[in-house]
């Protein structure tokens, strides 16, 4: 614990009180999301609603399993679609960003500064700005309703490149110089020397890209490029069930089903975050935009 300077007890209490107040506001919806998933049907209709579950049950989970089992496309297909898009999208993003961030951070080629300012500019506007042109470009390329259409947006996600470039810039140049003296190629320098040193940044862009892919393919409005039932991702299908329509089959999604689905949808990104959390803090320490 570091030594505390200039700290008044009153001030500390005031800050903690305010933090606690905010924390309760933040956490109550999350507690409901978790406990509702385990509530039996009758506890959904208690008046007033209870924050914590009294008689936890797994019926909601088995009910959801039943719904998915009755559908003509097996549940595993949706799971495969999700994994496929995440592996190719996030994996490709991490690989391409690593390749590009290294020259952007350490080489001095013409056009570099212009490219970087464009990348920072891309952080400044909403992805919806490019939604319509991208739809048209994808349809001209024949990519609508393919895995590629779900993968491309995650490949060009600008935040990943920005963070990786900032992180690599802080690595000492002497490492690269000495490797060059020993005759290492640029690719050898990147993959043998740089990549092992930027693991925290890699973990961070994995998380950000994963949550981007996860949320992007889950809303009807979010994805936008997929129409075939067999190409839908798991979050997409789960969200559709909560909205009452599941392909051409109508499903009555009672509160228990909705609760379980939300529990599943929220727990996966949180699990990924827990694994990557310490790397993220280390990486974001270089995220500042220098004047």
């Amino acid at each position: 614990m570091t030594n505390r300077l200039n700290r008044s007890v009153g001030g500390t209490l005031f800050l903690l009180f305010f933090l606690g107040f905010l924390g309760i506001f933040m956490v109550i919806p999350l507690v409901f999301t978790i406990s509702n998933a385990f509530k039996p049907l009758n506890e959904f209709y208690l008046f007033p609603p209870k924050l914590f579950v009294r008689n936890p049950t797994l019926t909601n989970f088995t009910d959801l399993k039943q719904i998915l089992a009755n559908f003509w496309i097996p549940f595993t297909r949706y799971l495969f679609n999700s994994l496929w898009v995440v592996v190719l999208g996030t994996g490709g993003h991490v690989l391409f960003v690593s390749l590009a961030a290294y020259p952007m951070a350490k080489h001095d080629f013409p056009g570099k500064n212009l490219l970087f300012s464009i990348t920072v500019l891309a952080l400044m506007f909403s992805p919806e700005v490019t939604k319509i042109p991208n739809f048209i470009i994808m349809s001209k390329l024949g990519l609508i309703d393919t895995y590629t259409s779900m993968i491309i947006p995650s490949l060009v996600f600008p935040l990943g490149l920005f963070l990786m470039k900032q992180y690599m810039e802080d690595l000492p140049d002497s490492l690269i110089e000495s490797a060059k003296c020993e005759g290492a190629s640029e690719y050898a320098i990147l993959f043998r020397i740089i990549i092992p040193l930027v693991k925290p940044a890699l973990m961070t862009i994995v998380l950000f890209n994963f949550t981007f892919v996860w949320s992007q393919t889950s809303g009807e409005m979010g994805g936008g490029y997929i129409f075939s039932e067999k190409l839908k991702t798991l979050p997409y299908v789960l969200v559709q069930i909560t909205q009452g329509g599941f392909g051409s089959m109508q499903v009555f999604a009672w509160d228990g089903i909705v609760a379980v689905i939300n529990f599943l949808l929220i727990s996966i990104p949180i699990a990924v975050f827990l694994i990557t959390q310490s790397s993220i803090v280390e990486t974001m320490a270089t995220s500042g935009i220098k004047d």
Binding site: T33, I261, L265
Partner: peptide, 8 residues
């Protein structure tokens, strides 16, 4: 939480 946040 993304989309799942809205249900709650």
């Amino acid at each position: 939480a993304g989309v799942s946040a809205f249900a709650i």
